[in-house]
Design a protein around this nucleic acid. Structure first.
Lengths: 119, 119
DNA sequence: CCAGAGGTACGACGTCCACCGTACCTCAAA
DNA sequence: TTTGAGGTACGGTGGACGTCGTACCTCTGG
């Protein structure tokens, strides 16, 4: 993590995440290949536009450290933004940016995902 | 490979591949996450409907055994069928079945793939 | 002030993946 | 009949992934 990223995070609580034009399609597809991560994205996509949701509200059936890992993967794939509020963190879908750079992707995942994994 | 599969292959030259309803979305997304495999799928999708194409015509920049590996991954992800003609093998996209079970997926990949990898 | 909830960082572990070389097979062409 | 092109199977290697436990941090509520 760069010095600038650290400073941004100290002030705003925003985790660093890549600009959308740097994200490759393969990275996004890899991120969405995991059923847990895909379930998270689907739930965010089905939520209110621009809505922020507490990470703790997802109840993923894995250990805390594994959750952290999945949040990072989703961040680095450009799919979510994450904000640290001290005692809790919040995520929101980068809906508009995704729609601009990967038009149709989000809608496809939402309609295609069986949603068998409760999360 | 089961006894039945072996018999089918001996007679028809068809490699075994799973029924479409057994293929999970995550498997398909993983298969498409690799740039080489995605390039193959895009080229097949852009070809004639139902067209069969020689595996050797793809000129993938990897060793023979690695190519074989990629064909298997694509087969097991339900994306292609492969036929052994003795001295050469041929692949064809399972276009209609994909469209039926994952509607919109193929079109999305074709439009979203940068196609930077020449293959 | 202190306990607890939420979360990250780090290190570890087992598995899978992309890749390769080698051995071997099959068919076609010389 | 022999050579070469195309291809699979197998074994191995290095790196990435999903998972976890532990240590440590921050804010809130008693």
């Amino acid at each position: 993590m760069s010095y600038h990223d650290l400073e941004v995070m100290r002030v705003t609580g925003e985790f660093p995440c890549p600009p959308m034009e740097d994200v490759e399609l393969g990275t996004v597809l890899s991120a969405l290949a995991d059923p847990l991560r895909r379930a998270v994205v689907v739930q965010l996509a089905n939520g209110e536009h621009g809505a922020e949701r507490a990470c703790a509200s997802f109840a993923l059936p894995v250990a805390k450290s594994t959750r952290t890992h999945h949040w990072r993967v989703l961040r680095e794939a450009g799919l979510i933004r994450q904000r640290d509020a001290g005692n809790g963190t919040f995520v929101r879908l980068r809906r508009d940016e995704i729609a601009r750079h990967f038009p149709g992707l989000l809608e496809l995942i939402v309609t295609l995902d069986p949603g068998t994994v409760e999360a």
